[in-house]
């Protein structure tokens, strides 16, 4: 325990935990990032400011400040129990469904703190889609699965909309002609792409993915990875993964959470993997820790 402390000098991590310089008040939609790298010009869509999450007395996420750029893939990596899923689920307020969960700090979506009194989490989730760890298609037909979100959100369900979503999820060719068979009859990888189609059918702005390939075989995993890169043309993608190679392959930015729910480093993916600033991050990436 004490030996580890040498690599986690509180000053050091405080200074670089966040890639943002505090800028109170000035949230314009097209505000560009002012990161150390200074390379990204994409506007920020989601931004956390000292966001902390507690489950009862237990702190699952340390105060986290981070900016997620638009139409890029942001990966969140870290060992299990490091708070990465907790962070993801606080973006679309899925944590609200857990009775004992409590949130401090701010989570801004297009500049608006989603934990403000006047924000309806249901309305929020209609703009931020989510794909889960285990494929979870409804026990309904493929068509009904894709149309579900449209129905829920009161949008028109057309064959065209269903086809578009399935095409974007790279599933259309495999299921064309059997749209009325059960979504549960598909293979694991197909089910997960069906869930992605279901999430993008209502056309959200952000897609949150919680280890979407962890339950899949290598072939299905690589299909999902290709698809994620494809989706980033139109959507902002935030993906939680424990697979570091996956994060390196598909993401533009990477955030590393380590034990205790602490965001240790956040930056351009290439930089994080080639030249991490923190010893702990390097240890984790090279497999010495976690």
């Amino acid at each position: 325990m004490t030996q580890d402390m040498t690599t986690s000098d509180p000053d050091e991590s405080d200074g670089t935990t966040a890639s943002t310089s505090p800028d109170p008040g000035g949230f314009s939609e097209a505000r560009t990032q002012t990161t150390q790298e200074g390379t990204s010009t994409a506007p920020t869509v989601v931004e956390s400011r000292d966001l902390a999450v507690y489950y009862g007395d237990e702190q699952a996420l340390q105060p986290t400040t981070m900016e997620i750029p638009e139409k890029q893939v942001t990966a969140i990596i870290g060992p299990s129990g490091c708070g990465k899923s907790t962070f993801l689920r606080s973006i679309n307020r899925m944590n609200d469904l857990i009775d004992v969960a409590r949130v401090e700090g701010e989570l801004r979506f297009r500049g608006k703190n989603v934990y403000d009194e006047d924000v309806d989490p249901v309305a929020l989730r209609r703009r931020i889609g989510m794909v889960f760890q285990k494929p979870n298609p409804f026990p309904k037909s493929i068509r009904e699965n894709v149309a579900y979100g449209l129905n829920v959100q009161g949008k028109e369900v057309t064959d065209e909309a269903v086809e578009t979503a399935l095409r974007r999820a790279a599933l259309w060719e495999e299921v064309e002609g059997k749209l009325d068979s059960s979504g549960l009859d598909l293979s694991g990888g197909q089910q997960q792409r069906l869930c992605i189609a279901r999430a993008i059918a209502p056309d959200p702005e952000v897609i949150l993915m919680d280890e979407p390939a962890s339950a899949l075989d290598p072939v299905a995993t690589s299909q999902i990875e290709d698809l994620i890169e494809e989706l980033a043309r139109d959507y902002t993608v935030v993906i939680v993964t424990h697979n570091m190679q996956q994060a390196a392959r598909i993401s533009d930015k990477t955030a590393v959470f380590l034990t205790g729910g602490e965001l240790v480093e956040f930056g351009e993916t290439n930089r994080i993997f080639e030249n991490p600033e923190h010893q702990r991050v390097e240890d984790y990436i090279t497999g010495k820790f976690g």
Binding site: E29, V45, E70, R110, G111, D120, A123, E205, Y235
Partner: peptide, 18 residues
């Protein structure tokens, strides 16, 4: 094509809970 067309960028609106 997703985000540009939106008009209510920060007003999420409210879904009826009636």
């Amino acid at each position: 094509m997703a985000a540009e067309t939106r008009t209510d960028e920060t007003d999420f609106g409210e879904v009826s809970r009636l």
